[in-house]
Design a binder for these strands. Structure first.
Lengths: 142, 142
DNA sequence: TATTGTTATACTCTATAACTATA
DNA sequence: TATAGTTATAGAGTATAACAATA
């Protein structure tokens, strides 16, 4: 199994996620929740289904995730003004503070991953290769 | 989410696994089953728990997986001669033929991934970086 | 006592169909 | 009719505890 891309990819992803989970164990934050909060922070007011799709989460599965973030007082849904079917997503005041802390904690984790790779240049090389695998169409803003 | 290693890794892994699943849909073979058959083929006679551990599968979860490979007539358990608690794992005659086919089909998939990456050199660069993330101690033989 | 394989079980993630309220 | 969000549900994948057979 020494040169099999998919296998190596899976093992590396599990290893990185395990470090992520250890890092955020105290904040009770999973990767999916992290990515949702980061995306709402970057694009407040975006529609619920847009956020879900951008993260590759089915809108049906996004509901419980968002319920939990609301229950914890970190994010909120607001009825769309023009289209009353839709919900626009926002961080609460507490959510904004939480995301600041989260970003600081995340940096520890990410620095550790960059160190494992051997530096930021190696990180950039890795991400470029991963983008080729994913077939990223263009550079997005997120 | 443009430079986050864990996120990019997850997306790339999903993309590669989806191609894998499409490629093997006709053979009804999942990545875990593929890896088990490949590992038994490379190391026939190895103990059940050893195979499971090497693939990062809990021995409790390995049972159903192995049951299915046996039911399909591809692999078999044999009682250990010295330690009668253990099972040594082997391919059947049909399993050996199946693995040959499987390897050929896999090559199609892998060539597609290498093409996405831009060639075998890029593939090698990727795997080297992934090994750094995983913290692979030495080169293994699998 | 400890280990191998097993069973039972629970929790997360993911996928689909069907409902509701709006458009 | 179609869409946004929701509910219910089912299937994988994964984790732990406890058991029987054997060491």
């Amino acid at each position: 199994m020494d040169r099999i891309v998919g296998y190596k990819l899976r093992r590396a992803q599990l290893s990185v996620f395990q470090d992520f989970l250890r890092t955020f164990a105290g904040m009770n934050l999973r990767p999916a929740e992290f990515s949702v909060l980061a995306l709402i922070a970057a694009h407040p007011g975006r529609k619920q289904t847009e956020i879900a799709e951008q993260l590759g989460i089915k809108r049906a599965n996004f509901v419980a995730l968002m319920d939990d973030l609301e229950r914890r007082g970190l994010a909120e849904r607001r009825k769309g003004a023009t289209d009353r079917r839709s919900h626009s997503l926002h961080l609460t005041e507490e959510g904004i503070r939480f995301v600041d802390m989260m970003a600081a904690v995340w940096r520890e984790h990410e620095e550790r991953m960059i160190a494992r790779l051997g530096g930021e240049e190696e990180r950039d090389r890795l991400i470029e290769l991963l983008d080729r695998l994913t077939g990223t169409p263009d550079e997005s803003t997120d």
